[in-house]
Design a protein around this nucleic acid. Structure first.
Lengths: 242, 242, 242, 242
DNA sequence: GATGAATGAGGATTCATTCAT
DNA sequence: CATGAATGAATCCTCATTCAT
């Protein structure tokens, strides 16, 4: 796998195929179908289907890396708010749920798959590191009250992840809002120095234009608003079955 | 499906097969193999493999129902501690990880499966109801400070679930302890009236003898320490592949 | 199989199951479902599914026998007209097509099944014998011109059967009318003595009230107008798949 | 399915499998076994077993098309005689009965199968068109007396088809001769202008060397006298059961 | 007689992966 | 590089038939 263009086109195909079929129902053919190349070629570039997905995780990780740096110059409170919104609501509110569902499926394969596990660990480490950095910066800047950044980061990430997962799997969208309010009540209100306050209600208009995942979609060469199913609410999208 | 014994034996087979193969790799044959009956019989009792798993979720739900009542007579603070320990650590510390991993796989299929979704929703509703009940009881008993039980329950469950999921998928056991401490710091310390305090460190010896999931194992007719893989730590168990 | 009531109820179940599922898709369960007894009992009374169908053919044959006698006292020309209408249009015009389609499927199994073959031969022999009898009676009565009854009977039955089959299989209803007119033109017009004439157009109102197959339905204990699909024309009924 | 050779080899395998197993008992494996390829390959080229059979009907239709043209330059009376012989007796007298039985089974599935129905209709339309053409040509050439070609064609085809079906299913070979004589008596003797006469007895020696179905066999790449069962008379061949 | 339970022997279809060209 | 063709190993599910009660 030398040619970055070929890789990019495969990665994009994987992304789209995951959105439409989910991970469990994903076939090599599904990926090839979203490429202008043949299925056989996939196995020329990769040793196995698993290998392709492994590289996809790597690809995601690389993109994430690039994006994180971009928010480094913002003040800690703002970065924290962006982080919360990004994690809890993802791109375009409920958009791309199907992709996140597929990623969730993939995550559940990590216990059985060394490669997946390793990549997801790197990703987890990095995610916590970013949040810890924000918290530490806030401490140093005197914007946050004294606390243990590591412990707090772990709690917040667990809470956000848990909320997102329940929303994605059982379609309970209200979870997101409840958990957001819960973190505001129990954590942020105490975390922020007395003069500051975490926005009680989420106001999307204050968000920076291009958040992380918009960028992911852009990187993948689509508009982040492709032909994948996006509807949601009470009835999660049925898997696309050919 | 009239005979409860037959159902029980199938449910147990499903449990064991899930532990050994995970959900994604689970075949009807795997289930039958853990029964003294033939594969065809499964389809005599159930319409499809999916149907079997659906009933398994129902079965789990029924057991859970029965167990919850048993802790009702304890004081709220104790119930809360039991709840946290049960959720975060599950039975026998790291035991039966493989089962929980499989359940996690199954949960990720809910977006594609109406039946799974519905059962998991019932389960989620009940779980939150139990925690809210504990919180409300504590408020009424004056053991807890004023707070919004619904919001708090949602936050705690999300955090516990998220921690467990990360531990299960990427094998980061320290997540559990970090999140436990985080909730103690940010939530429980404020929640409990001044004279009470949430145990800073978890001490298994103080736990009541038979917690929920020991009971599940017992219900399923095994010792909760069966032949399923149990090793964990840094390297999650590889799926048992025939 | 001693009890005639049991046999009758099974025969009726076979009839209904054939109407709804066709022969190829017919299962022992389908038959049992239309009985108030269990599937196992079928195999108590019969050695095999094939055996059941064999007895069903026998049953049909017995009914047919009884019916034929009833028209014996009519004049030959009238009997001939009834025969043609009965054969070409069956009961209630296009009704019970599904049954006849199933019987056609069954007939095609005769080459592989000694029992079926034998019963169908008996049935064929009898059918030709009846027509020959009519033709011979007409000859003797001077109502028909000189001809070879055996040869004519064979031709007519082949033509009627072929027309019916094409109508049933490819849904070309016009075949029936064309063949009826064809036989009138080429056979009946020459067959009938100069003073008589075969009705050029078929007029159902002149038919005797209860023709053969109404009786079959009645014998089977239903109204000959059950819940089986009856629609037809250009698009033959799709098989009922549970 | 681009390669015509592959298609041809599959079509031939279908033909042979149909001869040996009949339609009802035909499995994908039976077809693959008569190929030098694997069963999976069938599903690479076709979507389903049904799809294969659908294409087989199409294939037959194409062959038939080609053959019809070849007799176009003969005089109407001769074409009529060839038509009758071909239809009533098929290739090599009683040869390939098993194939025709299988086709009959397939025809009875048309009511349940849109694709089969459509192809069989095309085939039926063409068959009648050919006969009507012969009759019309004979009228124009003054070789046939005045009549309605459409009506006559329908009658003849119904009679021939009905005769063939009865012969195939119940093994009454005499039907063929009787119906042939019947048509001669009632139709052809009147149809032909006074100076001509339809051959009273069938004399195979006068038939043109290569009739239609010899050609089919040849097209299919075998000698028309393959290893399929051919015995007949009173006891139709038992289906070949593995 | 009657039945619920049980099963063996398929049978259609899928899919990751390989290979000749 | 690229691909169409090819396949082995599964996998779910069906169903006639049997059997213990």
């Amino acid at each position: 796998m030398t040619d970055p263009d070929v890789r990019a086109s495969i990665m994009r195909a994987v992304y789209e195929a995951l959105c439409e079929h989910g991970y469990t129902e994903l076939t090599a053919q599904d990926i090839a179908d979203r490429t202008d190349k043949s299925k056989s070629l996939l196995f020329y570039h990769y040793d196995s289907k698993e290998d392709i997905l492994g590289d996809f995780l790597e690809f995601l990780f690389e993109r994430f890396d690039e994006r994180v740096a971009e928010t480094r110059d913002r003040p800690p409170v703002e970065r924290l708010a962006v982080f919360v919104d990004w994690f809890l609501y993802g791109p375009e509110e409920n958009d791309r749920q199907s992709f996140h569902v597929a990623m969730l499926e993939l995550r559940t394969q990590a216990p059985y798959n060394e490669t997946f596990r390793e990549k997801l660990r790197k990703s987890d480490d990095q995610l916590r590191a970013v949040l810890e950095e924000i918290l530490r910066d806030g401490l140093e800047a005197g914007e946050f009250n004294e606390h243990d950044p590591e412990e707090t980061a772990a709690l917040l990430i667990a809470a956000f992840d848990g909320a997102r997962i329940r929303q994605l799997t059982i379609g309970r969208d209200e979870y997101l809002e409840q958990v957001r309010k819960g973190t505001a009540t129990w954590v942020f209100d105490d975390l922020l120095a007395e003069d500051a306050s975490f926005p009680a209600d989420r106001d999307p208009s204050t968000l920076p234009e291009s958040d992380q995942q918009h960028r992911l979609a852009a990187d993948l060469g689509n508009d982040g608003n492709g032909d994948a199913d996006e509807s949601n609410d009470d009835e999660p999208t049925e898997r696309d079955r050919e």
